[in-house]
Design a protein around this nucleic acid. Structure first.
Lengths: 195, 195
DNA sequence: GTCTATATTGAGATAGAC
DNA sequence: GTCTATCTCAATATAGAC
């Protein structure tokens, strides 16, 4: 089959456009046009526009959670190093899952009004737990200051990470790893227990 | 006149709804309904829905820039204290200008496609300059590490600030000042030159 | 200044021929 | 599997009576 899987092609196109213009600003006609078919034909592959959004996002959530789980499970890293690796992964999403990240970040508030996207809330909480666990362990291990607020720290970090998607340009300047390194450097020297 | 200025009332209502549901998801019918008139009557006060958005945002930008200017101009604060005060003001926008901040933060990408909202870009750059100036001065004064990246620091700080609007609940927990204090504490102990 | 009524546009979705 | 053609609905905006 020389023809690329059309369903996947539609997903790729839709993902791009959702990221560029926002979900609600992207019409099925536009998706069809860029995919090279008419809007009506989309409904051969998907039951609704919502289905397309769902296919893009549920895939993203599964991948990201899996990867965070892997890092969080490593036993060869101390808490500070673990935060560092998690931050590197978090920033890497900007280039590796640009479109999905933009959609989740920019529109999850709107999307979760629809019950079918309730898993976005669970996703958020799962990721938060991965980070706060590491912070808490770090405190217990005496590696981080005992008066830190894990939830607040996570939120600062997360917002700085996902916020970067609005200004980061891959071609010039630092890599996402370098940005993560800078961020973690600022963070650690503020939260590492004095020694 | 016992009647509140209707134009202002419409603006207040619209601002609220834009923040709740997003600009494009808010219809003129809904605005009219909550303001107690029919959608058609809105056009007696505004030429278009865009005009309403504009009225809300241009006002916000003017106020914020003015206040940042005031803080940045103070001569009684050293760089670290100035960052602290600016961050406190930045976080205070969450409660003081909730709706406008949400709109600017969540939708400026979309809005600036429309030429008439080009001033949002200028606004962003102006605010950035206020912050990076302070960081740069701090380096020159030997108060901050010499290898910091003012732009990146500003972006971390800004994204953490505006991101907080998605999780901050005024009624319970910390005040915005307290959150700013925590944030700046983390930030400073990472960027203050050793002494 | 507000209403009724409606023009106009564009969206998601469907039916059925090919 | 894709197209043509169209339905249905909801949005912004307008015209003109009151």
């Amino acid at each position: 089959m020389p023809m690329v899987d059309r369903k996947q092609q539609i997903l790729d196109v839709a993902k791009e456009m959702f990221a560029e213009r926002g979900v609600s600003q992207t019409t099925v006609r536009q998706i069809g046009a860029r995919a090279g078919i008419l809007s009506g034909s989309l409904y051969h592959y998907f039951e609704s526009k919502s289905d397309i959004v769902d296919a893009v996002l549920s895939d993203f959530c599964k991948t990201v959670l899996g990867n965070y789980w892997q890092i969080a499970s490593r036993t060869d890293l101390d808490p500070a190093e673990k935060v560092h690796q998690m931050a590197r992964y978090g920033f890497s999403l900007i280039t590796e899952h640009t479109a999905a990240l933009i959609i989740v970040h920019r529109e999850s508030n709107e999307l979760i009004r629809d019950r079918r996207f309730g898993y976005l809330v669970d996703f958020d909480q799962e990721v938060e737990r991965r980070y706060t666990d590491v912070f808490t362990r770090g405190v217990e291990a005496g590696r981080f200051k005992s008066d830190i607020d894990p939830r607040m720290l996570y939120r600062f970090l997360r917002d700085a990470m996902v916020g970067a998607i609005r200004w980061y340009v891959p071609s010039k300047g630092a890599s996402t790893d370098q940005i993560a390194d800078t961020m973690v450097d600022v963070l650690l020297y503020g939260i590492l227990a004095d020694n």
